[in-house]
C-alpha cells in the first residue's frame, strides 16, 4: 500500500474486516473502532492498533504492508472470509460460489 488511509471497500477486500454500524466486523465478530473509520475511509494506524495488526513500512519506497489481526488465535471467526483466487489461466473463482456444498480446501505448492 502507498497510503495509510484506505476506502472501507478496499480494506474489506484486503483483510476481511468490514465497516458496519456496530464497528469493524469479520464474520460474526465485531469490534468497536470509532476512531479508525470515518466518511468511508479507514485510518490504518488506528485500526492496526485496535485489532493488533502489524503495520510495517519501507520508507525509501514509500510502501506499507499490514498484517492480520493478532493477539488471539489464527481464526477470529469460523465464518469463511470472502476469497477470490485465479486458476492457472487467470480466471477468477469465488469460494462463495460453492455455498450449499461441503468444501475440502487443500493448500499445496510446487516447492
Amino acid at each position: 500500500m502507498t497510503s495509510l488511509d484506505q476506502s472501507v471497500a478496499d480494506f474489506d477486500a484486503a483483510t476481511g474486516w468490514a465497516a458496519k454500524p456496530e464497528g469493524m466486523c469479520k464474520g460474526d465478530m465485531c469490534v468497536p473502532a470509532p476512531d479508525a473509520v470515518s466518511a468511508g475511509r479507514v485510518d490504518l494506524v488506528a485500526i492496526a492498533d485496535r485489532l493488533g495488526m502489524a503495520l510495517v513500512g519501507d520508507d525509501t519506497r514509500g510502501l506499507w504492508s499490514l498484517g492480520p489481526e493478532s493477539g488471539g488465535k489464527a481464526l477470529t471467526t469460523a465464518v469463511v472470509p470472502n476469497l477470490e483466487l485465479p486458476d492457472l489461466e487467470g480466471n477468477p473463482f469465488k469460494l462463495s460460489s460453492l455455498h450449499g456444498r461441503k468444501v475440502l480446501l487443500v493448500a499445496w505448492a510446487s516447492w
Binding site: 483466487l85 469460494l95 460453492l98 456444498r101 461441503k102 468444501v103 475440502l104 480446501l105 487443500v106 493448500a107 499445496w108 505448492a109 510446487s110 516447492w111
Partner: peptide, 10 residues
C-alpha cells in the same frame, strides 16, 4: 456433496 478445492501457494 464434497467439492475439493486445491490452492497452490506459488
Amino acid at each position: 456433496g464434497v467439492t475439493v478445492v486445491t490452492v497452490a501457494l506459488d
